[in-house]
Amino acid sequence: MIADQISILLVEDDDLDADIVRRSLSKQKITNPLVRARDGLEALKILRGSESQEGLKRPYLILLDLNMPRMSGVEFLDEIRQDEQLRESMIFVLSTLPDAPGLLEGHEKEITGYLTKGAFSETFVNHLNSLKP
């Protein structure tokens, strides 16, 4: 059983893809709280919080799309890895592109893994379970 208190931050601009991810998580019986950001800037605001709202509490993991407006997934990775408070975040890159690893050249060690949108494997579930407090 997966610890329900571990939040999942989905950083995805496309509504259809976000629904596919939600259904895939449900199919794997992953019922953790899911928070969605539509781009990297919104995700950073959710993680860091604001004057009126606290940031997303740990433990959490991030499902990150690469192609987004305003701040792409690669730009988000650059920003998060420079932030002392966020740099240790567990990040899975979501993609439907077979060349996604090539898009992340130089970031290989900064992500936990790659996931195909709609296909959540036992490896992903094991990583989620590893975050149990």
Rank of each mutant, 00 (worst) to 15 (best):
D19H: 11
N32F: 01
A119Q: 14
V21P: 09
L9F: 00
G55I: 04
K117P: 06
I111C: 10
R81W: 10
L66A: 07
Q82M: 09
E84P: 14
V125E: 03
L10G: 01
G102A: 13
D15P: 13
I2A: 07
L61Q: 07
L47K: 06
R36K: 10
F120R: 09
L86V: 08
L103W: 12
L131I: 09
L9Q: 02
L64Q: 04
E105I: 07
E75K: 15
S89M: 02
L44C: 09
M71V: 07
S130T: 09
P101L: 08
E108P: 11
S26R: 12
Y114Q: 04
T31H: 10
L104W: 04
S24T: 04
V11P: 02
I20Q: 01
E105S: 13
L61K: 03
P133R: 10
K27A: 12
K109G: 15
A3E: 15
D83A: 02
E105F: 11
I2E: 02
R23F: 13
G102L: 13
S121I: 02
R87H: 15
Y60P: 02
L9H: 00
V74W: 07
A3R: 11
L63A: 05
F76W: 03
E54L: 14
D39G: 05
P133N: 09
P98S: 14
T112K: 11
I30W: 05
H127Q: 11
K27H: 11
A3M: 13
L97I: 12
G118Q: 00
P101C: 07
R58W: 14
D4W: 00
L56G: 03
R87S: 15
R22Y: 05
P98H: 13
T31R: 10
S121H: 08
T31A: 13
S130E: 12
L97Q: 15
